Simulated assay, not measured.
Amino acid sequence: MDIRQLARGSVEWVRIERVVRTLAERYDLEDVRVEFLEADNWLSTPCVINDEYFVKIVSRQNALVHGVLTTGRNVGAFSSGTEGFFDRFDTPLQMVEHEFEATERMRGVGLNVPRPIDAFEVNGLGVLVLEYLPAFRTLDELEDGELLEYAPTLFDMLETLHDHGLAHGDLRAENVLLRDGELYFIDATSVDADRISETAAYDLACALAILEPRTGARDAVYAAASVYDAETLLSARSFLDFIRLRPDHEFDSTQLRSELEKMADLNS
């Protein structure tokens, strides 16, 4: 069994049926079609209802795994020279309520995100309901040239997020979608609202880590420099080694650090 499937666990069918019945009652659905998604994640059982609602079902097991991952991330942040800034949740309901609120805030500042619809609890399970976005591609599905074309837009979106005192906190290629020529953020995690300078630097470092293997370090940094000043660019350096240790990022941190320092020198 895949380690992610083992960690995520499985939700009993009778409990899933209760969630589906609750959704049908809440949204007056007579015919309900459920498609479960083969998503490679640790933290929910995702499905689509009637090609209209994207639903995450979060169990107690998911919440426990989230707590373990959060502890690891905070240790990694500490190793980068700062206190941990990732928040953890004790219950499935807290997890879905946070993602609902984070998505709502991002939408409120003008960023493209799926429309948040609902967050509630059914039989100990957290249930998050978002607008379903069909026909999208994630960043890792784009051609290299296409990815480079959208890189400045990615950094523009991050700057908007940070200018409003928000952060994504879990920026990976699969958490940025391209649909109808527009980029969308999904799956924001919870970070300390009082630590925006560190969380902004972390988001920036994650974005560079996404781009570097596909565009090269220089083009990735040039794209970031079209949006960020030299001081902000340099702030991303301290998180590169920590991010490189994560299994969802593979990139050359040495090359990125070198290009960041060169760009900062040019702009100083």
Results as ranks from 00 to 15, higher is better:
Glu198Lys: 09
Ala200Pro: 02
Ala193Phe: 14
Tyr184Ile: 11
Arg246Asp: 15
Ile57Thr: 00
Ser258Cys: 05
Val48Ser: 04
Ser79Lys: 14
Leu29Lys: 10
Leu208Met: 12
Thr232Ser: 11
Asp31Trp: 10
Phe251Pro: 04
Leu133Cys: 10
Asp31Leu: 14
Leu166Met: 07
Asp87His: 09
Phe136Tyr: 15
Thr199Asn: 12
Lys262His: 13
Arg218Ser: 02
Phe36Trp: 08
Leu177Ser: 06
Val75Phe: 12
Leu130Thr: 13
Gln61His: 02
Phe239Met: 03
Val19Tyr: 07
Leu43Gln: 04
Thr138Ser: 11
Pro92Arg: 06
Arg218Lys: 10
Val32Cys: 11
Pro92Leu: 06
Val58Lys: 02
Gly108Ser: 15
Asp194Met: 12
Gln61Gly: 01
Ser235Arg: 12
Ala188Tyr: 08
Arg33Phe: 06
Arg195Pro: 03
Lys56Arg: 13
Thr199Gly: 08
Glu99Tyr: 08
Arg246Ile: 13
Ser79Val: 02
Arg33Ala: 13
Phe136Met: 08
Val129Pro: 05
Leu234Gly: 04
Thr232Arg: 15
Gly216Glu: 12
Thr91His: 10
Arg244Leu: 11
Leu256Glu: 05
Glu143Thr: 10
Gly165Lys: 07
Thr199Asp: 06
Glu121Tyr: 02
Leu211Asn: 14
Thr160Asp: 00
Lys262Gln: 15
Glu38Leu: 03
Leu6Gly: 02
Gly110Ala: 03
Phe242Met: 15
Ser80His: 03
Arg172Val: 05
Pro134His: 08
Ser190Phe: 05
Tyr228Phe: 14
Ala205Met: 06
Val32Gly: 07
Leu23Met: 11
Ser80Gln: 03
His164Glu: 15
